[in-house]
Simulated scan of single mutants.
Amino acid sequence: MKLKAVIFDMDGLLIDSEPFWKQAEYQVFSAKGVKVTPQLSELTATMTTRQVAEFWFTRYPWADASLDDVENNVIDKVIELVTEQGRPLDGVTETIDILKANQIKIGLATNSPAKVMHSILAKLGIGHKFDVLTSADEVNQGKPSPEIYQLTLSRLGVTASNTIAFEDSLGGLAASVAAGIRTIAIPAQQHYQSDKFAAAAAQLPSLSHFQLELAEQCLAG
Rank of each mutant, 00 (worst) to 15 (best):
F197K: 00
F57R: 08
H191I: 00
K129N: 11
L156Q: 11
L133M: 09
G142Q: 06
T83F: 00
Q190F: 11
V52G: 05
N111A: 14
A174Y: 04
R155D: 07
P38L: 14
Q189C: 02
T37I: 10
Q103L: 05
G142W: 03
E167C: 07
D16Y: 03
L108D: 07
D76F: 00
F55L: 12
S161A: 13
Q27R: 07
V92F: 03
V28F: 01
P144E: 12
T110H: 08
E216K: 08
T152M: 04
A188N: 12
T93L: 14
P205K: 13
L219V: 04
L156M: 13
F20K: 02
K143D: 01
I104M: 05
V70D: 01
R50F: 08
L207A: 08
I184N: 01
I184E: 00
K22F: 06
D69N: 07
T183Y: 01
A122I: 00
I126E: 12
D137L: 06
P19A: 10
F57N: 03
I126L: 11
F210T: 10
E84C: 03
L124I: 04
K100M: 08
Y192F: 15
T110C: 08
L204A: 03
E42K: 13
Q217L: 13
D68T: 14
S135T: 09
Q27H: 08
G86R: 13
K100L: 14
I106F: 08
A5C: 04
K32V: 02
L13C: 10
S112A: 15
V74E: 01
H128R: 10
Q103N: 15
E84H: 07
M1I: 12
L170K: 03
I148V: 15
S66T: 15
Q217D: 10
G157N: 09
S135F: 07
Y26W: 11
I104T: 10
S41R: 14
K105W: 03
R50T: 15
S41Q: 15
K35G: 04
A65H: 10
Q203T: 05
A53R: 02
E18Y: 14
K77E: 09
N102F: 07
D195C: 06
K196R: 14
F57M: 08
R182Q: 15
A160Y: 04
G33T: 06
P146H: 01
A65Q: 10
F166V: 11
P19H: 13
K100P: 07
A114Y: 09
S169M: 02
I96K: 06
L3G: 03
A65R: 13
T95C: 14
E25K: 09
A63T: 15
I7Y: 01
N111T: 15
P113C: 11
